[in-house]
Design a protein around this nucleic acid. Sequence first.
DNA 1: TTGTATGCGTTATCAT
DNA 2: ATGATAACGCATACAA
Lengths: 346, 346
Amino acid sequence: MKKSEASRITIKDIARELNLSTATISRVLSNHPAISESTKKLVNDKVKEMGFALDPIASSFRSKKTKSIGVICPRIDIDFHSKVISGIEDFAYKQGYQITIFQSQDSYKKEKEIVQMLETSLAAGIIICPALETHRFEHLKKIVKSNIPLVLYDRSTDSLKASKVIINDFEASFNATEHLIQQGCKTLAHISGNKNVDIFNSRIAGFKEALAQHQLPIHEELIKEAKNLTYEEGKVQAEALLKEHIIPDGIVCANDYTAVAALKAFRNKGYTIPDQVAIVGFSNYPISSILEPQISTIEDSAYEMGRVAAKILIQQIEDKDMQALDYQEVVIKTELIIRGSSFRNK
Amino acid sequence: MKKSEASRITIKDIARELNLSTATISRVLSNHPAISESTKKLVNDKVKEMGFALDPIASSFRSKKTKSIGVICPRIDIDFHSKVISGIEDFAYKQGYQITIFQSQDSYKKEKEIVQMLETSLAAGIIICPALETHRFEHLKKIVKSNIPLVLYDRSTDSLKASKVIINDFEASFNATEHLIQQGCKTLAHISGNKNVDIFNSRIAGFKEALAQHQLPIHEELIKEAKNLTYEEGKVQAEALLKEHIIPDGIVCANDYTAVAALKAFRNKGYTIPDQVAIVGFSNYPISSILEPQISTIEDSAYEMGRVAAKILIQQIEDKDMQALDYQEVVIKTELIIRGSSFRNK
DNA sequence: TTGTATGCGTTATCAT
DNA sequence: ATGATAACGCATACAA
C-alpha cells in the first residue's frame, strides 16, 4: 500500500490565492510592523482556511535562527535532573522553544561530542550540567566565543564566563549542620559525594565552617565519600562510620539516599534516631517524606532551577543582537526542611 | 565588545580548495557508492583539516529529512517516564538521532498542539505516551496518514494502527495477585490507578482473573481508585479499606507509592506485614527496596521499554521508503520481585 | 566516477 | 505598505 505524500502548502500558495507577494505573507507571519491591518487579516484568514504553517526548517535555514535549546545532563533518570528538565521544558515551551536532550553519562568525551554537534547545528542556546569528568572547559569556551548563549546549572565552575544557575551549597550545608548543632549534636560526621566535584566540596566546606563557628572539633575521619551517592554506597560509608573510634551523634549527608542508608545502619546497631544520632539529607527526594522517621533534608528547588535556567537562556537568545547582557549568575534559594530524623523534642 | 561571527565553512569552500564540484563533496559526505577511494580520502582529509561539518539545517531543508525524534510524555519528572526517555536517548543517540521532548501534562489539548507542531516540523518520527485525558486519537491517526513513523509506549489503544511498546499489565497484575494467593491470602483488595485508563483496567482484570481462577470471591468494594497514584491518595484509599466491613489480608497496588501508603496505614492499625496483610506494588521504584520491609513489586523495565521504542521507531524511519514494515507491537517482559512485604516464611 | 544546474521555502534587501 | 528578487547550503536529476 502506497501512502500519499501530501505536498506541503507554502507561502507561495497563500500569495497566489490572494494576489500578494510572498514577501507580504512572510511579513504578516512574522508580525512585521509595516503591514496594513486589512491585509494582515486577509492573510491570517487564508492561512487558517488552508491550514498553512510555516516550515520551521526552511525558516531556520534562511534566518539562521532556531527555536531549539540543547540540554545536556549527566542522566535524565536521576530525580534531580528530571525535575530540572521539567522546569526547562515548561518555560521553554511557553516561549515557543523546543528542547533537545542529551545524556553525557558524566563522560567528558561524550559531552565534548555533544557540545560540538550542538555548535554546528545552530542550537539557539545550550543548558548544561557539566559531567563529573569535566575539568577542562575549552569546549564550552568555544560555545561562548561562537556567541551561542550558554547556561550552566547545578555544577558550576569559575573558569568559565557564562551564565549559571546554582544553589548555595556552602550555605545549605552550613544550615543543615548548624541545625544539628542546635539540636545538641557535638560529634558530627558527613557523608559527601564525589570530592572532586565543586558542589560537594562546597558542602564539605559549609559543614566544616558550621563546626568551626560553634567551636566544635572537625574529625576528618568522619568525613566519608560516597562517590555516586547511591543507597548502597551510603550504607558502606555509614558502616564505616560505625567502626570509627568516635561515633558521631549527628550526620549530614549529601543526598537523601545516603541519609536513609545512614539512618538504617545506625538504627540497626541500636542507636535511636534522632536522639542518639540525628540525621539530615539533601535534595528532598520523595522517599524522605515517606520513611519513618521522615528525613530532614534540603529542598533544592530543582524544578525552579530549570525554569530559571530556561528563562536566563531565552533572555540571552533574544537579546543577543543588542548584546545588552553578557552573563549572569542566579543562586536559587534552598530551604532546610526539618523532620523527624533530626528534630529532638526537648 | 563585539563578538566575532565566524562565517560558516561550506561544501563550496571544500570544493574550491580541491578543484572538485560541490556534488562530489556532498557525495563523499553521504557515503555515495560511486566515488573513488582516492577522492574520498582527499575530501575527508580536507574536511578534517578545515574543521568542516555539514549544516544539518540546510541538509534537512534540502532532503526533507531530519534526525530529530519527537518524544511526548505526560511529565518528565516521573520516575517511569524519565527512565523510558533515558532508554530512548541512549539508543537514538547511538543511531545519530536527537530527541526533542515535550510534556503533555496529561492534557489532551496540549498533546494535540504538540503533535500538530511535530507534524509540520518534519520530525523524523514520534514516540508518545498518550495523555490520561486522551480518548480520541484523530491527531495521531493524522500522523500515521502523513507517513510519519509513530510509536506508542506504556499507555496504548486499540483504536490506532501504530507501533506499540507495552507491558502485559493483565499478566503482571495476575502474577502479583496469584503470588499473594499462594502466600495464603483469601481476601484480596486492589488499589488501582485511574480506572478510565486502559492499563489500569487491564490490571484490574488481571487481578480479578487470578481470584476467579483460584475460586476466591471478588469484593468490588475492595477495589479502590487512586487516580494519580500518589502516596497521599494511596493513604486515603488504604484508610478507606480499613473501614470496610471486610478487611483484606492481601493488597495488590498499582504502584509502589500506594503500596507504601497501604503498608503504613495497615501497620499503624496494628496489622503485621506480611503475615496479616501481604502487599505487592508495581514499578519497582527506588523506595521499594529501601523501606523495611522491602516492598514486593513488578519490575516494568522502563529503560528497556524506551530502548525498544526507539529501536522500532528508527527501523520504521529508515525503512520508510520501502514500506517493508507497517507497524508492530512489542510486549516488554515484566518480572515479579518478591520481597518482605509479601513473602511469608512458612 | 564526476560535473552542471536546479530548487527546496523562507527571509531580507532593495526598490517602488 | 507592498513587490521583485536574490540568497541561504545542500542534495539530486541529469549529463558527460
